[in-house]
Design a protein around this nucleic acid. Structure first.
Lengths: 339, 339
DNA sequence: CTGAAAGCGCTTACAG
DNA sequence: CTGAAAGCGCTTACAG
């Protein structure tokens, strides 16, 4: 507890009790909202609290056994997480929205690989009621820290190796299928895809969604995997795709950057979008809005991810067992001009 | 403190003392690193800690008077802050980097207007050693909460009404002057600006930077204020600017979205950029990279802002008085193709 | 319904 | 150098 310079001394519950002429236990009961306290006593306590400027000391409260009312959102920094940034803040906002309803304080903890020791102290130090992991890598040591602390947890992404921790994921497969399917309804026949790196679960899911939506028209030759999620990688993969199938009439980019790269390639090559070629992306990021023509794409439910994780930990705090829980948060397709 | 389901009971310092055959006080001294402890005792304690799996209880520590080792970055949500998102995560990363050196845990607290009560409990509850405000509005009640708690603080942006709190701001004026000045060196004569909304300090600062860099060539007629920072507002303001001065040969957009809108307008109208018209922006956001041609712009020092705030609170924890401190964090111009 | 008392786990002077 | 003891501020049974 930081010492306030020159600040008198913080009022304690005892000060309130004395000012109100009532015992400390009763004040505690009233403040905590447990057990009966006479109206008369309540009035006196309220007045006394105001008078002495009392604020409960969280540390003392917790030491005595009360829950901390703090729920952490843990961000393992060095991860590629900070690349997909917009999702992070969206999660924060969503989680906060759900937590506030229960009067729980959202506490975002960010830690690099070098901070795991300090993080462990914090996690196991008893200040937290639960932990949400913004992005756990496979075998992430943070998971163990949370487990050791015996804290209710929730995680985003699918982690088959963590069956006991409820998870929420973006419905990548469904979102991809939806936008690709609708793009195809117009009668496109030669459909290609710029896929994301196969080492990523989300890339695989989107590919699967694409395949199922393409159905009979699916042609493995027309799927090119990009080295990563960047615009540059999209340029390279797009060139290859165009080489393989100059007669393409529709393309799904596994994210907006890839799709945008393809649009630039196509338009630069003299084709019209969506006239000659329909193109759709995924993410609803800046890329999609800035593209010429603007990309039709799939919006990520970032806030919903945060809200859902918050809901999961709250339910566990309430005693529910959420083993095996996995919910896919639906996406929303955003139609613009590229398809 | 959350109760771990089925977890035995957490080891306390007393368990360690018993396992090591040493008194509790000595264990504490060793763990805290205060006072002398014999090598023999240290060895036994280390072993015992490992054996019983001891982790200090943060609440108890704090109750007994130790600092919490937690520093908050407070994000007042509903603000326009989440619009300028990339800066937020940059600040988090920067602050964390500085704090970890002192073994301080960064704790991001996010709160909407409806959460101020809960936030107040957290801030004054004794869990924090200091607070950094990501974006304080004028007269922000959070400032008062922090003051009441007697916590060392730091803030971003300029707040003349808060002379006692050290502040860090982006050098908007300098950054604007720098990029505009260099753009003009080529000999442009009719220089316009799409200014940001005048109610914002940063908009005013950038305008001032523009004016000083334009010097003799400055013409108030060629400055049009956009309604807000959006692309759409840029389109409207850009149209007006073009109407006022069809012979423009250089334009400074107070942010990238405004500048990008202007580029689109100009190119759409048949002019070449940077041939006929040089255009520069501010922020180094996605807009600048996606623009055709890509925008030359000014990069915001988001991480530096976080690092600086962290430095400020650390110094105050160490006893320094930082009254009146204001540092302007330098920006960096990024040259691309639009000028 | 409301006191008095014990206890949460640690730290810090104070003796030894 | 290292114990024993008091105290940090609150909560929770337990008596009354």
């Amino acid at each position: 507890m930081a010492q306030a310079k020159g600040t008198p001394r913080k009022a304690t519950m005892l000060d309130v009790a004395e000012a109100a002429g009532i015992s400390r236990g009763t004040v505690s009961r009233y403040v905590r909202g447990r057990g009966y306290v006479s109206p008369e006593a309540r009035r006196r306590i309220d007045l006394a609290i105001d008078k002495v400027g009392y604020v409960p000391n969280a540390a003392a409260r917790m030491l005595a056994g009360s829950p901390a009312q703090n729920v952490a959102l843990i961000v393992h920094e060095e991860v590629d997480l900070f690349a997909s940034d917009p999702n992070l803040t969206g999660m924060m906002v969503g989680a906060n929205r759900a937590l506030r309803l229960r009067d729980l304080q959202l506490v975002v903890l960010i830690a690099g690989d070098g901070d795991l020791g300090r993080l462990g102290q914090t996690i196991r130090g008893g200040l937290l009621d639960a932990a949400m992991l913004a992005s756990a890598r496979i075998g992430d040591p943070i998971i163990d820290l949370v487990r050791q602390a015996g804290l209710p947890a929730a995680v985003v992404g699918r982690h088959p190796e963590l069956p006991d921790i409820p998870a929420v994921d973006v419905d990548n497969r469904g979102g991809a299928a939806q936008i690709v399917g609708r793009m195809l309804e117009g009668g496109r026949r030669r459909v290609g895809m710029l896929a994301g790196p196969a080492r990523m679960r989300s890339a695989l899911d989107r590919l699967e969604g694409f395949r199922s939506a393409a159905g009979a028209v699916y042609d493995a030759e027309l799927v090119v995997e990009a080295a990563d999620w960047s615009y540059e990688a999209g340029l390279a993969a797009g060139l290859e795709l165009l080489r393989r199938a100059p007669d393409l009439d529709a393309v799904f980019g596994a994210n907006d950057a890839l799709a945008a790269a393809f649009v630039d390639l196509a338009v630069g090559g003299g084709r019209s979008v969506p006239g000659d070629l329909a193109v759709v992306g995924f993410d609803d990021s800046h890329w999609s809005r800035r593209c010429q023509p603007p990309l039709s794409t799939v919006a990520q439910p970032a806030e919903a991810l945060g809200e859902r994780m918050a809901e999961f930990v709250v339910r566990q705090i309430d005693g529910d067992d959420l083993t095996g829980t996995l919910v896919l948060e639906p996406t929303q397709v955003v139609w613009r001009q590229s398809a």
